[in-house]
Nucleic acid binder design. Structure first.
Lengths: 192, 192
DNA sequence: TTATTATACGACATGTGTGTCGCTTTTGTC
DNA sequence: GACAAAAGCGACACACATGTCGTATAATAA
């Protein structure tokens, strides 16, 4: 028997995702979610007991997707510098996406639900690990100069996070955005 | 006649501030504030009609304080590099402060109240302006190398913001923190 | 001391979200 | 088509925050 319930679950999470992107985490209610996915309270509560559960589900789905994209990106490209550029480009797309409000919601979630903060730490840590892989590869091939890999990785992740989290709130021009990426590139590339 | 009401107003805002630092902006209710400052609903509502008003009051007070500190810092020190270091040091103190949750609350406030986002932009803009002043001074005296002042200022502000905003959520060691400050210093200092 | 006014109180009516539960509808199987 | 199980519904009781308003208390002036 193919479960129809799983389909519904995805439908609910997708509806909730758009809500989280618009209103953040705390402000979204179960009632909102019910309305957005055109279901009754009873229907939604069959699958999720709280917005917290919905959010966790969303995080898990989103995370799988992200990991796929990045690993595909790494295997496809050959030059370390090109990989890094592609990585930056992808992040810029995330910043410019209408869904970018989600990054703020994730922060809010971590703040509001202390028992889930390990997920944020996990997320950050994974991001750092990916950058470290790129750095190591780039240094072996001579594309990158000598620098403190970990510190720079941490720096990039935090900085990107700031851009993503506040993209809904603050205006930043395309020009400034590419200047920022150049600053980051300068931290690893040979030429001054 | 010396107004007692103004004293009470400050008392309310101070109580609310500690709440915002603990729970963020959205999660704090008027009821919470009443309890924290040991006043009745009627008493508090005489001064503020909503948590939004309380928060705005808090922002204004906090802002004045910050401006004073920074300008005092600039006038006191002589060497540009020392000024920058002092600036970093102050920011680290903010990150480590038990009140650091406030930075997240400010983000949440800006996200939740679109009509108040201009205040955030103002805040960021002022931060950038201060850095630009330091940079200009530093370059004149030969302490700093040649670089894109605006881009680096924007970078520092965003990066610091990330550290402050996520300090409640993520762990970062003292060692890593000083490494990060070194990375920022390298963006402006002469030696490689 | 008394009158006046600013300050503070807390009960109340209202609005809104929560989670449950018995019932109906749909789906899949025999 | 009949039956059982899964999926979906929406009314209900409950919890909680809001904002108001008549009353009480404290502060100040005459």
């Amino acid at each position: 028997m193919v479960s129809k319930g799983n389909q519904t679950k995805i439908r609910i999470v997708e509806a909730a995702t758009s809500l989280f992107a618009e209103k953040g985490y705390v402000a979204v209610t179960m009632k909102d979610i019910c309305e957005r996915c055109h279901m009754s309270r009873g229907g939604v509560y069959r699958y999720f007991a709280s917005t917290k559960e919905v959010f966790i589900s969303m995080l898990d789905m989103d995370f799988e997707k992200n990991l796929e994209i990045v690993t595909a990106c790494i295997q496809e490209e050959t030059d370390a510098d090109t990989i890094l550029k592609a990585y930056f480009k992808q992040e810029i797309e995330n910043i410019r996406s209408p869904q970018s409000g989600l990054y703020f919601a994730i922060h809010e979630f971590a703040f509001a639900e202390p028992d889930q903060r390990f997920k944020m730490n996990q997320r950050v840590h994974d991001g750092i690990r990916i950058l470290l892989m790129i750095f190591e590869y780039g240094q072996k091939t001579g594309a990158f100069k000598d620098f403190d890999h970990e510190a720079v990785a941490v720096h990039m992740i935090y900085f990107m996070d700031s851009l993503k989290t506040s993209s809904t709130i603050l205006d930043i021009s395309d020009e400034m955005l590419s200047k920022q990426m150049a600053l980051l590139s300068n931290m690893v590339n040979r030429f001054e």
